[in-house]
């Protein structure tokens, strides 16, 4: 069995590689990333290639390896920058790159492709119902066009999934906030920071999934999860204030409704993208029941409280 993991240098991919080696000891795993591998993986059945997945050598890899399963965990995140150039780079990589991965998977007979999207696609809006199901409209880019790449990448994969459902199996995950010692996404940085503003004028509720639980679900997608789109979230929720308390970091009480107008000043001191501010203002609570029905024997190993307490390990 040949498995490709795109975005292999991330923390989640690292855990997934370990789990796949345990469950499928004879499988050969190829990791690809434009960044260098963070942690060395000492396993003869693992190969890492540093390359961009928009380049022609990527096609060569598909031709030579004939992968059975492809994990697309390589969505470029919003950490790092929000200027025009960053946005264009993200749009290019996330859309053109994803399209290339899907086309190559179909062309070279991949059995199943597993895509990691995000719950951000639903958008954090004041009129979100509590429990957004998978068929809810993707409204993330209504207010902030900067989030277009997030929704368009998801839509691209979903349309593609239905179009070719007879030829290739596709599983798309929209997880709630993934946290853990190896994850360094925007929300993890926010939770760990002692200087992040905590809204005193809104009461957003959150869901968190531990990195090991998320990696376990990704692993099980190969054998146990049918073609479809699945939210990933435990049933438990927590307010942002309580989450900060459980992490043990300090915060600055601040009316978040004033942060947006002041964002141009604050962003000089704080790396949190201003268009993600609504995610710490309004709730975006998703319904994880469709996935629970697929893998009824799966139980989240970490409660939200435990996940938050372990974030700084």
């Amino acid at each position: 069995m040949n498995i490709l993991i795109i975005g292999a240098s991330g923390g989640l991919a690292n855990i997934l590689t370990g789990l796949l080696h345990q469950s499928h000891p004879h499988a050969h795993i190829t990791g690809v990333d434009s960044r260098p591998l963070k942690n060395d993986i000492h396993n003869p059945n693992f190969t890492f290639r540093k390359m961009r997945y928009t380049r022609s050598q990527f096609e060569k890899l598909f031709r030579e390896k004939r992968f059975d399963y492809v994990y697309h965990l390589g969505r470029m995140s919003h950490v790092g920058g929000s200027n025009q150039q960053d946005i264009i780079k993200r749009l290019n990589l996330n859309l053109i790159g994803t399209n290339k991965i899907l086309e190559l998977s179909l062309q070279f007979g991949v059995k199943k492709i597993i895509v990691l999207s995000t719950h951000h696609v639903y958008g954090a809006l004041s009129d979100n119902p509590v429990y957004l199901k998978e068929d809810a409209p993707l409204r993330a880019s209504i207010k902030y066009p900067e989030l277009r790449d997030v929704t368009e990448m998801d839509s691209l994969c979903t349309n593609w999934m239905w179009r070719f459902k007879d030829k290739i199996s596709t599983v798309i995950f929209r997880p709630c906030n993934i946290i853990g010692p190896q994850i360094n996404n925007s929300i993890s940085q926010y939770l760990r920071s002692d200087y992040s503003p905590l809204p005193i004028d809104f009461n957003p509720m959150f869901q968190f999934v531990h990195e090991l639980d998320m990696a376990t679900i990704l692993k099980r997608a190969i054998d146990d999860i049918d073609t479809g789109v699945y939210n990933v979230a435990p049933e438990q929720t927590v307010s942002l204030a309580k989450a900060k308390e459980l992490v043990g970091s300090s915060h600055i009480d601040f009316p978040i409704s004033l942060v947006s107008p002041l964002a141009f000043v604050l962003k000089k001191f704080w790396s949190f993208p201003d268009y993600l501010l609504d995610y710490i203002k309004h709730s975006c609570i998703i319904d994880g029941n469709a996935l629970r029905r697929q893998i009824p024997d799966h139980h989240y190993r970490y409660t939200i409280d435990e996940s938050l307490k372990l974030i700084n390990l």
């Binding site: 009129d127 004028d201 809104f202 009461n203 009316p255 978040i256 409704s257």
Partner: peptide
């Protein structure tokens, strides 16, 4: 009302 859920402090 939807209007209400966007009001700072009161919504919280």
């Amino acid at each position: 009302e939807r209007f209400f859920t966007n009001l700072p402090f009161i919504n919280k």
